[in-house]
Design a binder for these strands. Structure first.
Ligand SMILES: [Zn+2]
Ligand SMILES: [Zn+2]
Length: 602
DNA sequence: GTTTTCGGACGCTCAATTTC
DNA sequence: AAATTGAGCGTCCGAAAACT
């Protein structure tokens, strides 16, 4: 496979993947996770924000930070509201449970920086008025404030959201109806992390000099040992970053380069994160939003379909443990093509300590999915450097993870790329936000006529989880999508290079049986198949996560320009569907707020 | 000139690990 | 059990490409 899902779906894994298709959700997981999550959430909220929050697990309720919900900011000047920079509880001395953290904030606080013409101004505001770059040029580097949960629209567009619901951006672009908190996937558990650097025990030497002397390092989940740099290239714990300040032990850590580490598992009995070959790899099979709420929306601004590019997931991916996943130095490299030593592949790393010993991580390929997928399918990616250049090296070296920036970029599903994402396989790549047919389940459907279906309750598909159990898919697929274009442009449209021809063909065929990606057009042959038929087939045959990704299929179709209509498979297939006004289309698709924890993932 | 796409820097959260 | 680490997962900036 290619694209995101690739690694996991390595043919070799298909058999395992089958497990994921089981229609009998082991049940415990979802409930368990949900419970856990609630606990954690509440715990965390209590501790970090000094208040517990009721309601959705995912959403920090709007206005939690005092954001004026009625604010209708302009995308560029949306910072009139109280920026979390200041209002965020963790930035508040009173609220912040961690003095260290507060200190860190202060260190980065723009106002703390001297000689700034921006001094005294709201950093966020400044940042948006002048741009972060501009501020940096002025010697200011405001800490970028993130909302805890971007709404689905902003998320998809990779644009700044705010705490309000509807958020300012949605208001601006008329996406109010679909402005909902996006669901967050739950972090996987059981991931071994290897030894942490020793803390500086008062008056004593580190217990394990070897670890502390050489600087922070850790074992990637795939068993690679690596400096504890962020997989995305950020050196966690480097001075200048918040985390570093919070680490009392930092001072004891030598940042000096340490000798390259052998690409081997530490022999301390530590094992790669998921011993089970199939174990965590289910993680990726997550629910995705099913369908566009607007099948044929006219393109309108605001909906910057910025999504697909973030297809790979450096993290979640379970592939790490999948046999053949290639993540591990332990003989998982395909074709015995042993990865070269990390260092040899490292594009010069910055001073940041980072990556030295790590290896190739390019687990999911290199960057952008686009390339990766590409030709080598899962494997290739491993050895290939990120598409882009360079500098970002660290990322691609990251042991346990895929290249920088890839990680999160999974949610997207836009016309051209979303596509790439997945195949069921992988975990990671399957964004919770991207639609996926759950085993034995049907994807949520829009009214056949494209009209609002009151009382229509789409079936709840389930998806395999990391632990092999299933979670319910959120039936909603809130993304308001604009009309898919005949994929003719876009960098992303790098054509069939994404997939191998054979693969494309396979996928093409598969597509009809799957939940269509958000805005994809079906080729005539598939269009002719009635929806009921599709549903039926779905029930009868379990999704082939292994190689048939709706997304991929989409991509292939896209590449071939074989679109014959504006309709999307799972959406409205009626003749007029395509021209429905935005509003009504949204009505159709406007999903009910996802029940806490239902997304599965979360 | 505008909109969309995309790479990737950066931030937050929280499970793993260490320390007490 | 508390403290801390540090990476999983997320947000979204800003530039380039595509479009109008
Ligand atoms: Zn938003
Ligand atoms: Zn919104």
């Amino acid at each position: 496979m290619t694209y995101g899902m690739a690694p996991p779906m390595h043919p070799h894994h298909l058999s395992h993947a089958a497990d994921a298709t089981s229609s009998l959700p082991p049940q415990s997981y979802a409930a368990h996770q949900q419970q856990q999550q609630q606990q954690q959430q509440s715990q965390q909220q209590m501790s970090q924000y000094g208040a517990s929050q009721m309601g959705s697990n995912f959403a920090y309720s709007q206005g939690f930070y005092g954001h004026p919900s009625q604010h209708h900011p302009n995308e560029v000047q949306s910072q009139q509201h109280a920026s979390a920079y200041y209002s965020h509880p963790t930035s508040s001395p009173q609220m912040d449970p961690s003095a260290q953290m507060y200190a860190a904030h202060q260190m980065n606080h723009p106002d703390m920086m001297a000689g700034s013409q921006f001094q005294g101004h709201h950093p966020d505001l400044l940042a948006h008025q002048h741009g972060y770059a501009a501020l940096q040029g002025a010697g200011i580097r405001p800490k970028r404030k993130q909302v805890k949960n971007a709404c689905i629209n902003c998320q998809k567009a990779c644009k700044k959201c705010d705490e309000g619901r509807p958020c300012g951006r949605c208001v601006k672009y008329g996406l109010v109806d679909t402005c909902q908190d996006s669901a967050r996937k739950e972090r996987r558990r059981g991931i071994k992390r290897g030894p942490y650097k020793r803390r500086a025990t008062t008056g004593s030497q580190p217990t394990n000099p070897a670890l502390s002397v050489s600087g922070p390092m850790s074992y990637g989940r795939d068993g690679h040992i690596s400096p504890s740099s962020r997989s995305d290239g950020m050196l966690a714990g480097t001075p200048g970053t918040e985390s570093s300040f919070s680490s009392p032990a930092f001072g004891t850590q030598a940042l000096a380069p340490r000798p390259p580490m052998p690409l081997q598992m530490p022999s301390n009995g530590w094992q790669p994160s998921n011993p089970s070959p199939i174990g965590d790899d289910r993680d990726g099979l997550r629910a995705r939003y099913g369908q566009s709420t607007a099948s044929n929306q006219q393109s309108y601004y605001g909906y910057e379909q910025d999504a697909a590019h973030h297809v790979y997931d450096r993290s979640s991916s379970a592939p790490a443990t999948q046999p053949g996943s290639m993540l591990s130095p332990m003989g998982r490299f395909p074709n015995s093509s042993t990865p070269q030593s990390s260092t040899s592949q490292l594009p010069s790393l910055g001073s940041q300590a980072s990556a030295n010993g790590s290896y190739l991580g390019g687990v999911y390929g290199s960057g952008a999915g686009r390339m990766g997928a590409m030709s080598n399918g899962s494997t290739g990616s491993l050895l290939s450097p990120p598409l882009h250049s360079s500098a970002s090296s660290t990322s691609f070296l990251s042991a346990s993870s895929a290249p920088n920036g890839l990680a999160h970029h999974r949610l997207h599903s836009d016309s051209s790329l979303a596509t790439l994402s997945s195949n069921g396989a992988s975990s990671s790549t399957m964004s919770p936000r991207t639609p996926l047919n759950g085993p034995g389940s049907e994807p949520p459907l829009l009214s056949p006529s494209g009209n609002k279906m009151s009382g229509f309750a789409p079936p709840q598909p389930t998806v395999p989880t990391a632990s092999g159990t299933f979670l319910q898919q959120d039936t909603s697929r809130p993304f308001p999508l604009k009309m898919p274009k005949p994929a003719t442009r876009g960098r992303s449209g790098t054509g069939s290079s994404y997939l191998d021809q054979p693969l494309q063909q396979q996928q093409q065929g598969y597509y009809a049986n799957n939940l269509a990606p958000i805005n994809v057009k079906l080729p005539m042959q598939h269009q002719q198949q009635s929806q009921p038929q599709q549903q039926q087939q779905q029930q009868q045959q379990p999704p082939q996560f292994g190689r048939s990704s709706p997304y991929m299929a989409v991509q292939s179709l896209d590449d071939r320009r074989q679109f014959l209509s504006n309709t999307t498979p799972r959406m409205d297939l009626s003749p007029n569907a395509g021209m429905m006004p935005i509003k009504s289309e949204r009505d159709v698709g406007a999903p009910p707020p996802a029940p806490a924890g239902s997304l599965g993932l979360a």
